[in-house]
Amino acid sequence: MMELLTMDGHGIYVWSAYILTITVLLGLGSYPFIRLARFKQRHQEDNEPK
């Protein structure tokens, strides 16, 4: 397990590259849905009778 984490001194580079990749992919994947939900909510509020 430690071997997988440290990777002979390269672990810091390898894991940071993978964590960064997953973070960017998660962000890119979720952002359109967040924006669409916000858009829908904003327009629902606009359409509500005052």
Partner: peptide
Amino acid sequence: GLAFVPPERYQGDSFRILFVH
């Protein structure tokens, strides 16, 4: 790529970054 392939002969484990890069 992270756990089931051996280290590359010249680059060692850092080559595993190439599976995402």
